[in-house]
Design a protein around this nucleic acid. Sequence first.
DNA 1: TGGCTCTGCGCC
DNA 2: AAAGGGCGCAGAGCCA
Length: 736
Amino acid sequence: MSSQNLLFLGTQQDKPFLPRLKPVMKGITTFVKLDAVSTITEVELYCRAKSVSGVLTTSIPLLSRLTDKPNPSLDAYSGSYFQRNGIEYVFVNPLDHTVSVPYGTFLLERYASKLVSPKSWRTPSKFNWSVISPRTADSIYAAFASPNCIAIAIDIETYRENLAIRCVGYTAIFDTGSDFETTSVVIPMDSDWTLHQVRKFNALPAAKIFQNGKYDCAYLSRYNAAPFNYLWDTANLFHSYYSELPKDLAFLQSFFVRNAAYWKDLAESSDLETYYLYNAKDTWATAEVFLAWMHEAPAWAKKNYTLEFPLTFPAHLSEMTGVKRDLQALKAAKLSYETEVDTKSASLDRMLGVKGFNTNSYKQKQVLLRLLGCGDIEGTDEKSLSKAAFRHPLNARILELVTEIQKDRKLLSTYLVEGKELNERILYALNPHGTDTGRLASKEHHFWCGLQIQNIPRGDAVKSTIVADEGFFFGECDLEQAEARDTAFAAGDESLITAVTGTRDFHSVNASAFFGRAYDAIYDDGKKKTKDKPLRDLAKRVNHGANYNMGAGVLVETMGLKNIYAAAKFLSLPKSWTPKEIAQYLLDQFDKTYPRIRGEYQTWIISQVLTHKRLTGATGWTRYCFDNPKTNKRALNAYVAHVAQSLNAMVLNQAYLKVFYDIALHPDHRNNFKLCAQIHDSILFQYRIGHEYLAEMVKDRMEIPVTILGADGKIRTFTVPAAIKIGNAKYWSQTE
DNA sequence: TGGCTCTGCGCC
DNA sequence: AAAGGGCGCAGAGCCA
C-alpha cells in the first residue's frame, strides 16, 4: 500500500474543531470519521477501502481495543503510536484542546507529524534488554566502560514502605560512528552481589542521564552508591526547552519518540520479569529522549540548560540536609491548636444551634451564607466570607469565627502533623524544573515524608517547631524588593527606578505620589518609622495589584469592601462612587505615577512574545511562550509577571550556586554551615554559633549585579540588596 | 475503598 | 464580560 491517505477517527465532540485539523494535515488527503467504531476490523476494512495507511484518532473505544484495557486514559496515551496489520495509529487529545489548551495545536501538529511526515522523526535505537546475571555482568560492564559508550541512562524503582531500592535499570548509548545504539540492563537490588554491581555501574566514567535524578540520587545515597558524572537530566532538558509543557517521562517519550506507546501501566504488574521490563523501558525512553533533545534543541534551550541543571546539586544537598523538628514543641503546638479548635467549634455550634458544623465543607458554608441572607455570594473562601461579614455585625461575629477555625485547622492538617519527620528531620524537595519562570518549586521529599518548605506559615505557629541543629543557629538572607526593582529596570521606567532604588521608603514614596500627601507625613526617615500606616498599606496594595495588571474588580476582591471604603473615606473620594470606581481610581493613581509600567512596558512584552514566541531575560534564560498575550489577558498577565519573577529567580539561583560552592562545599566553611533551602527571594541556612561572618558571606554572594536592556532601549546595571536575618535563632521563628 | 476533581489556602 | 502571577497539599464530594 503506497498511498499517503490518512484517516482522522474522532468523536462528535471533535466536530466543531475540525477546521483546526486541516492545516495540521498539510494537504494530505484525510478522511474524517466521527461515528463510533466497535471493532478494529471495522476500522481496517474502512482503511483498505480508502487506501488509508495511518489513523490519527481521539477514539477511546479504539484505544481500548488496541491496548486491551477496559478504560484507558486518552490523556496518558496522547502521542502514543500503535501498528497493527500494516496500519499505523497515533492517538491525540480531543480536538477542543486546540482552543482550550495554549499548546493544544502545537501538540496536535507534532503528533500528527508522526503520520504526516514520518521521515522528520529520528529512528530510535532497537530496544534490547536483559536482567543482569553473574554470567553476563562482566561483558555488559566492559561494554558500558568502553570509550564509545557516550552516556548511560539510569532509573531506579523503589519500595515506598521501607525506602528500599527494588531494582536499577541502565541504558548505555553507544556511538557507532554513523548512529547510536543502545543496550539496556536491569540490576535487581536483592543481594550483596547486585549492590556491588550497582556501585560499579554507577561509578562508570560515562556521563549519566536521569529523569528527575534527584529522586534517584536521594535513594542511591542511602546505599552509598551515588552516581558519578551525572550531567544530564531529561526533566531539566525539557524544562529548558518548553517550560510550559508537562515534563513526565511518558509525555517526553511521546513527544520525542515516534513509534512509542505509553508503557507506564506495566509498573502495576505483579510479575517480576514484567516489572524489570518496565524499569528497562524507562531507561531506554530516557536515553532516547536525551538523544532526540540533543538533535533537536535550539541554542537558547541549551543555554537554559547550562543555567538550570547545576542547581540540581545545591538542591540535592538542601533536600538531604532538611531541618530538625522539635518533636516536643510540635506536640505542644498541636495540642494547643486542637484545644483552640475544639473551643471555637463548640462556640460556633452554639451560635448556629447545630452540632458539628464543618468549616472545611464548602457545601455547609454555602448553606450558612444562604441562611445569613448572602446567597448571592458565589464562593465560600475567606474573601467571600468577609464580604458577607461586612454586611452585618451578626454575620461578622459568625463568619470571623469560621475563618479563625479554618486557619487553625489548616495549621493542624498541613503543618503540625506528627510523623512527617524522618529521623526527627523535616525533609523536602526543591525542583529547578518545577515552574514556568525558573523559580525552584518545592514539595514533600522523595522519601514520602516532610513538607513543602516554601509555604510554611509566616508566624511562629509552625516555625517555632523547627529547631536548629546542636551548636547552630538559623540564618536567612533575602533580596529586598526584588521584583519591584526588576520590574522597574526591565521596564526602563525612570520614575519607578528612582522610587525603588532611592534611600526613602518605597511604599511611602508611592503613597505620597499616588495620593498627593507629603512624604514626611507618611514616613519618618530619621526614626525609620511609618507615620501613616493605612495610607502606606494602601499604596502597597495598589502597587502590588498594578504590577500584576489587576483589574478594578479584582482589586475590590483582594482589598475587601471594608478597606475600599476606608480608602475612599480618607482620600475624600465622592460618596456616590461604587467600590469598583474607587478601585479604578486607585489604579489610575498608579498609572499616572508610573505610566510606562502598564503602558509601553506591556506593549513591549506583547511584541516580544508575538515576534519571537519567546521571552529572554537579562541572564539569558528564555521562556518559550505558547499563549497569546494580545488576545488573552490571562496570558498577558502571566508573561508580564514572568519577566520580573523570572529575573529574580535567576539571580537567586546564581546566588544559591555561589553559596553552595563558596561556603557549603568549601573545606574552610563546610563544617560550620548548612544550606537548608531557597525560598523564592531568600536563602535559609544554619551557621555554627560564633561563625556569624558566614551570614555576611551569604549576603555578599546574593548581591549580584545585573545588566539589563530595558523596554525603553537603554542598558542599565543594578544590584538588588540583600538583608541578613539572624539573631541567636535557635528556632526558625527567631530569625529577624 | 480508591481515584479523581473541586475548593480552599499556605508561601513569595 | 471580565479576567493578579508562580507553586503544592488537604479535605470534601462524587463516582466506579
